[in-house]
């Protein structure tokens, strides 16, 4: 259960940061480029999967426990629901932040442009919520599958 060799551990740690960064990029730019919360969350979960395979479940559980992952998953889902409910002033899921000038509130000019990161209102926030949910839920699934494969835990 102590994971793979020192070489694999070191290389996986080297790869860990770029994969995580790429995942965060996909989540954050969901409203501008292909991708979004689900896809980015999956990329983040692959980084955690790499860590799990290289270091073993014991080390993984020491850093990210089952209960912790489950709680984070709930928080992601709840914040998605809360963002949808906050629009209730007009309608459920209404985008109350778009074009408001504040957070993610810039209005987008008509015509071709490179994409403005600080736009689209609640959509990027919802992408973050989905990203948190998918990343934690998928790592939880991977952890449980890993444990049942090794015949330990429960």
């Amino acid at each position: 259960m102590s994971g793979l060799s020192q070489i694999v551990k070191t290389v996986s740690l080297v790869l860990f940061v770029p994969i995580l960064t790429f995942g965060l990029y996909v989540v954050a730019h969901g409203h501008l480029t292909p991708g979004g919360g689900f896809q980015g969350g999956t990329v983040i979960a692959t980084a955690l999967a790499l860590f799990l395979v290289a270091f073993g479940a014991k080390e993984f559980k020491r850093i990210l426990g089952k209960d912790f992952l489950s709680a984070v998953e709930s928080i992601g889902l709840l914040s998605f629901g809360a963002l949808a409910l906050l629009g209730l002033g007009t309608a459920f899921f209404a985008n109350f932040l778009a074009n408001s000038g504040g957070l993610f509130g810039k209005s987008v000019p008509v015509g071709a442009n490179a994409g403005i990161f600080n736009s689209a209102g609640t959509i990027p926030l919802m992408n973050f919520a989905v990203g948190i949910e998918v990343a934690s839920a998928l790592s939880l699934v991977l952890l449980l599958m890993y444990l049942s494969e090794k015949g330990v835990g429960k």
Binding site: S70, A71, E73, S74, I75, L77, L78, G81, A82, A84, L85, L88, A91, F92, F93
Partner: peptide, 16 residues
């Protein structure tokens, strides 16, 4: 909308 949203939100709240 609330009829669908309320059970969903409560379902996500319970694991906490």
């Amino acid at each position: 909308a609330l009829a669908i949203a309320i059970p969903l939100v409560f379902a996500f709240l319970l694991p906490l």
